[in-house]
Design a protein around this nucleic acid. Sequence first.
RNA 1: GUGGUUAUAGCUCAGCUGGUUAGAGCAUCAGAUUGUGGUUCUGAGGGUCGCCGGUUCGAACCCGGUUAGCCACCCCA
Length: 455
Amino acid sequence: MAKPSLPQGTRDFGPDVVRKRNYILNTIKNVFELYGFLPLETPAMENLDTLMGKYGEEGDKLIFKILNNGLDNPDKEKQIREDFEKVLQGKNTKGITERALKYDLTIPFARYVAMNHSQLTFPFKRYQVQPVWRADRPQKGRYREFYQCDADVVGSNALLNEVELASIYHEVFSRLKLDGYELRINHRKILTALAETCGGADKMMDITIAIDKLDKIGIDKVKEELIQRGLTADQVNIIEKYLNITGTNDEILVSLSEIIGNSENGKKGIEQVSFILANLQSQTLNLKLDPTLARGLNYYTGIIFEAKAPDIVKMGSIGGGGRYDDLTGLFGVPNIPGVGISFGVDRIYDVMEELNLFPPDVHVGTQVLFFNLGEAESKKSFELMQQLRHRGIRSELYHETAKFDKQFKYAEKKNIPYIIIIGEKELTDNTCTIKNLASGDQQSVSAASLLNHSF
RNA sequence: GUGGUUAUAGCUCAGCUGGUUAGAGCAUCAGAUUGUGGUUCUGAGGGUCGCCGGUUCGAACCCGGUUAGCCACCCCA
């Protein structure tokens, strides 16, 4: 028999890891609930045409497609061979793949809203925590199956939503002690204005892809890439001026106005960014206006967010989001604007692991282990244990009578902080011995007062 | 999708220009120790050297392929 293995880019999560992941997931969910968001789940798979064309050309390639069943049906052989020819030419066809694993949570959410808009109360605020799949090549911080935690508000144009979402980032990262995070914001209209000002509105994609790499490859390489992408030297000069903008958020706003303030889009973008900055000033210090931020997903139309891990861990983005004017329009229901954010749990996990930010008590599962020292003794232990469990104390009884040594080691390995000994002596006295394993302190208490003991 | 790099015990890794029966530490199990763990000592088990093929009298080592990890590019959480 072949050795068992996992598909590329996927992982098992053992008990310790699940505990730590749950710590992150619960923190995020609690904050979402605190801000009035409602839970939603959608299927692992979607119809392929729900997903295709929503994430750009590159995104389409990364969608995991599911092979149809019944392709070996001899009655359909001719049709299937024809369809397969199309696949060989790089086209998709319903005859071969009709479904795909979901690529993110935003598009399935838009599909859900489009299907249910008549029953929803707007603005509809939903959060969603589920795995998504990407047929990307794995590397550090990049998996083929990973979790996203999204919160979106649809049916409202109010910028207050952006303010709320930014506050959620701050609240979650503060609770996780990820204080070194940085939330960068920019506005799609500011980028559009830049493209217009350079006389190349149609070059928007080329410009954003190139300038997004600034802090990675440096100004010279970005200029090189811009020229390669067909921009003139004059245009590149304007972009260079734009990229050289530095300073405080207020200073950046002033500089932006100088370059793109005459454009309608530029004005609008600057105005909206100013509003958000002004409303958050008192609450978060980690908010940074970054004109070079240009998130890839092409459905964003307004504010864009990106949460960056503390610089020392070299992880990059641990969350992102933005405003999209008309996502449900893609599914035939226009005029429902939305804005949302996403947390990348798997990356947050890696960052917290690297920075040692998990609280030590994440690992405490069972609080109390009852030693098993004989038949009559374990019967009594079981009785008391059930009473402790009624009180909500997580307890277990060692599964068989064994030497002290063994039972101690079991408690240690499972990080159980307290053990309770009920042996021959305790049985006759109707007492029990409670021992704190970390300190070594132990005390004898009556069976009755055990139930009021605090662990 | 492109390129680089790595794969030896449960884990971390040694293993010389290709040469008998592939090693260490940690972990596991047993004993020293039948009501008090973490320390120490003694002993034991555990490997088709990722997988498939080739070169060779002989391969963990050289060559080809393949799978997986890591890294870079593309893109992204």
